[in-house]
Design a protein around this nucleic acid. Sequence first.
DNA 1: TTGACTTAGTAAGCACTGCTATTAAAAGCA
DNA 2: TGCTTTTAATAGCAGTGCTTACTAAGTCAA
Lengths: 152, 152
Amino acid sequence: MKNNVAFLTADVGRLMRKRFDMMSRRHGATGAQWRTLGAINRTPGITQAALASWLEVEAVTAGRMVDRLEKAGLVERRADPADRRAWRLYLAPAAAPLLVQLQACADTLIADTLSGVSEGEHDLLLALLNRLRCNLLDEPVATSPETENRDG
Amino acid sequence: MKNNVAFLTADVGRLMRKRFDMMSRRHGATGAQWRTLGAINRTPGITQAALASWLEVEAVTAGRMVDRLEKAGLVERRADPADRRAWRLYLAPAAAPLLVQLQACADTLIADTLSGVSEGEHDLLLALLNRLRCNLLDEPVATSPETENRDG
DNA sequence: TTGACTTAGTAAGCACTGCTATTAAAAGCA
DNA sequence: TGCTTTTAATAGCAGTGCTTACTAAGTCAA
């Protein structure tokens, strides 16, 4: 019952989220928020639709995440001069130091989680999870886990 | 950014949940509900606290899940004769056929997700995820992925 | 017996995610 | 130009999960 890949991935994902949120709470941000900030940091001026695509969530989800981040003063929405439907997203100044702190939380979390797992096992785990992810997205499997070619 | 174990497990877990819910919607149940029904089916008369422990979620989460399942006519709460604080949980008759249908959904989902993954890789993946789960729960690593010794 | 502690469960509120439906605007086509 | 389709974003509703705070009840020691 417990040992199928669906329950195990859901469990590990949930437990990592819980632990990250516990660690990062004093910084006032969650794991999903960190990930969103990272995506905007990576591509300043990204639209919500492209952000949703990069995060692989629905547009509604991305939009509401931006709502919360904007309310927290971490993200700015600026009108797109060429498309009056769209927003362009930029990090607010307060986001930069936060990103550094959250990265430290993430490093600690991942180290704790991977305790007792060899480097080879870690690589294999990432490769397998990446293949599952591609299967679920109906995408061709990326050639290596390091591949990062989805610019929204 | 995308290829760390935290994001990948969260993604795979979320995508599996989404796909399961899509498949099982016509049966009127979700993945988490199926898991809960399975736990009650496995241990009829379980209390909510034990259920939460077995599902490895908080008592609040388990309680609200039982709320929904009771409202849907799938689970019965019966008073515990020995402890007036506690409820004993039992499956309602309507749950039995549902469990069969949801198992079929899960089988399809897992087969789709593991497409292109060998049996050996699958076993390794389960073992690694199980180790990560134990790390996150601060538990000793179970001796094998088949271990199932948590009876709440 | 009484008081302190623990345990079972609920209530309120928030974060994240999804679905469906809707609005506004861009894009494509005749 | 005008019509249809597509796209960007939002609104409302619901499921899952957590924290904090609370009530009720069981347990255990003085």
